[in-house]
Amino acid sequence: MDAELGATKSGGGSGGMQRFAIVLTLVGLIGVLIFYWQVFFWVNTERTMGVAQRIFYLHVPAAWNAELGFGITALCSAIYLWLKDERLDWAAVAAAEAGMVFATLLLIEGSLWAKIAWGTYWTWEPRLTLTLLLWFIFLGYFMVRRSTDNSEHGKRFAAVLAIVGSLDIPLIHVSVLWFRSIHPKPVIMSADQPMNLEGDMLVTFFTALIAFTLLFLGLVAFRYGLERSQALVAQRLRRERSA
């Protein structure tokens, strides 16, 4: 990429990383374009839900990527606290940002779907509620990272929050499900009810899933490289100042 930046990178591998990120992102982008073409011009409209069912193709990959992102963050955070390897923290923050982007998308898709299917933008449907809470937990993750004078502390605090959050999620999920069950049920047609997908719908669905996952991996790899460069630049500046 850039000679200047390349000079700050210690050792090899980072150039390969950036190339890998760009290739993955481009392949993902092409896949997403194919998927958009499929959704708008190719795939048949589902009979009962009509055109709104098309949100489903976007909704499921968004959910999968959000979960993937937050899962990677929690895992990397736990190992980071254990091994204290900077790279794990870079991976955690990269995945957390991606998880945040896709969780936001998921919330938007979810409420658009809810508007059509249930007549309201927001319902306290368990999955929707859980996603909202996850979103707020990871909002805290970024706020805590940014609000420390000592960045090492910020990283550790954020990792602690990610671990507690991921352990709390099953409890939150159970409680939200339970909360739902004591309220009057709205007329629910679950977005994730197994629909008998026809061949073309299945193809579209998997195109979306694979394309967005590749895009996710590419962008996370790119973000990882960015975090790494930032850390190395900060390190070098510190060293120059103290010298």
Partner: peptide
């Protein structure tokens, strides 16, 4: 955690409330 940050107590509810949902429910 929050007293280790520059924001101090302001940050506490933001970190705590989402985690406390089971207790409230």
């Amino acid at each position: 955690v929050s007293s280790g940050t520059a924001m101090g107590g302001t940050l506490l509810p933001i970190l705590l409330f989402p985690l406390l949902v089971p207790v409230v429910i």
